[in-house]
Design a binder for these strands. Structure first.
Length: 440
DNA sequence: TAGCATGATTAAAC
DNA sequence: GTTTAATCATGCTA
């Protein structure tokens, strides 16, 4: 029986009041003021107070002083309350208690009292209605949800986490093998976090649903003796959900923390700094010293270098940034290195031109032709040269006139003198290819 | 283990 | 957006 019906039933059963006045609490009060009804309500309230004030032990002692456990069990439906016989009535309540309850329910003033309670209830509900309006979604929860979704902890398993891992691994610039190991390790840990998160979430949801059902049953049960509207039950359910969602938020928070720790441990590039391999450093140095007059690789050149070195474009930028500043700070220290790479480049250029002469014709000129940036391993040639020329690192005179590149490498560099950032310039050449700026 | 080398990060300037 | 300059954190080596 719903609240409305219950109220109506109660009111129609109001014996001491005129039918026309039924449902009007003022009329009820008027009647109460006449004397007899007031006494009745007083009685009924007295009885209610007496029952509610009693502890269970007291009630037990009074109703069944020598009861056995067999008195418990069954239904407490008031309609069953009139059943004859000793021992237990329904609802797990002793029969005497059932009788008292039933007597109370059947009291002729009960419907009127119930209607007054309904009125009071209605007013109370109205006063708190404004406060109970639906809350907007919590931005913090939204942030947490978004992060968990982005990391692949919540939502579908694919993408998120592994993508983040891949991106971060790429940013860290580790070797392919290293990054793949770290990647799988990261994914395994992330999967662990995901599993824990989902199992905990399931537990919370189960507990929430169980508790909600329990409370709803309790309220439905109570609605027999006090007015409880379905809206109130809904509100109570909402309160329970809010409480549980705060627990969920804690779970989400700690999951996010775990993910952040995992990320910082596995993917923090600074933590995982690895020196570039020898070949990569050589490629970068070759470019740097062969563009010493303007060591600012274009975006295309950076991409090309990054590809050659197996690192990212930003790592190339970092490297050049560091190199420029360190070179500038201590030119003397880097002079030897500069000479070394200048010779290396020159030897390569000489080799290239010699090959070109042989391949074409004896008269083919090579001056002015662009020198390919892709240098073969000229280390041996350089060492031979070095030994021929002693440790003085002088350039073989025969090589000098052939390469404007060489002079470019060794000339005074304007970028070193300026304190302002050098304008972003690209060495001439088609995009995607790395050239030495022989035209300089 | 100290000291240097080196890659990454940061703030400020442009 | 890039660059410089300073700095941090880590790797390498004697």
């Amino acid at each position: 029986m719903d609240d409305q019906t219950r109220m109506m039933t109660g009111l129609t059963g109001l014996g001491g009041l005129a039918q026309a006045d039924v449902g009007d609490p003022d009329s009820v009060r008027k009647q109460q003021s006449l004397g007899q009804p007031q006494q009745d309500i007083g009685d009924i309230l007295q009885q209610i107070m007496a029952i509610t004030d009693e502890s269970l032990d007291e009630a037990q002692a009074r109703c069944w002083p020598e009861e056995s456990p067999a008195h418990w069990g069954g239904s407490d439906d008031p309609t069953e309350g009139g059943r004859a016989g000793g021992g237990m009535a329904g609802g797990g309540l002793p029969l005497n208690f059932q009788h008292r309850k039933h007597a109370l329910n059947c009291h002729r003033m009960k419907p009127a009292l119930f209607s007054v309670l309904c009125e009071i209830k209605e007013k109370t509900v109205l006063s708190i209605r404004g406060v109970q309006e639906e809350d907007p979604p919590d931005p913090q929860i939204m942030r947490l949800d978004n992060m968990l979704l982005a990391e692949g902890v919540s939502g579908p398993e694919k993408g998120g986490g592994s993508a983040a891992a891949a991106a971060a691994a790429a940013a860290a610039g580790g070797s392919p093998t290293d990054s793949s190991i770290e990647h799988s390790d990261y994914r395994a840990k992330l999967a662990q976090i995901r599993q824990i998160y989902h199992s905990e979430l399931e537990k919370y949801e189960q507990a929430c649903s169980e508790f909600t059902n329990h409370v709803m049953n309790l309220l439905r049960e109570q609605s027999r003796t006090r007015p409880i509207s379905p809206k109130e039950i809904e509100r109570m359910v909402a309160i329970i959900h809010r409480k549980f969602s705060s627990i969920q938020m804690q779970l989400k928070q700690s999951t996010c923390e775990a993910v952040m720790i995992l990320r910082s441990r596995f993917l923090d590039a600074r933590r995982k700094r690895r020196n570039f391999n020898k070949q990569a450093t050589e490629v970068l140095n070759e470019y740097f010293y062969s563009h010493l007059s303007n060591p600012y690789p274009s975006e295309e050149a950076k991409e090309e270098l990054a590809k050659k070195c197996g690192i990212t474009v930003s790592q190339v930028s970092n490297w050049f940034g560091n190199k420029r500043i360190r070179y500038k700070k201590n030119i003397g220290k880097f002079q030897e290195e500069a000479n070394l790479y200048a010779v290396k480049t020159a030897v390569d250029a000489a080799n290239v031109s010699a090959q070109a002469s042989q391949a074409n014709s004896p008269a083919t000129p090579n001056s002015g032709s662009p020198v390919s940036y892709s240098l073969p391993n000229t280390g041996d040639a350089y060492l031979s040269l070095r030994s021929l020329n002693g440790e003085g690192l002088n350039i073989a005179p025969s090589l000098q006139p052939q390469n404007t590149l060489l002079s470019d490498c060794l000339q005074a560099n304007s970028w070193q003198d300026t304190t302002n950032p050098h304008p972003v310039t690209s060495p001439p050449g088609p995009p995607g290819s790395v050239h030495s700026d022989t035209s300089n």
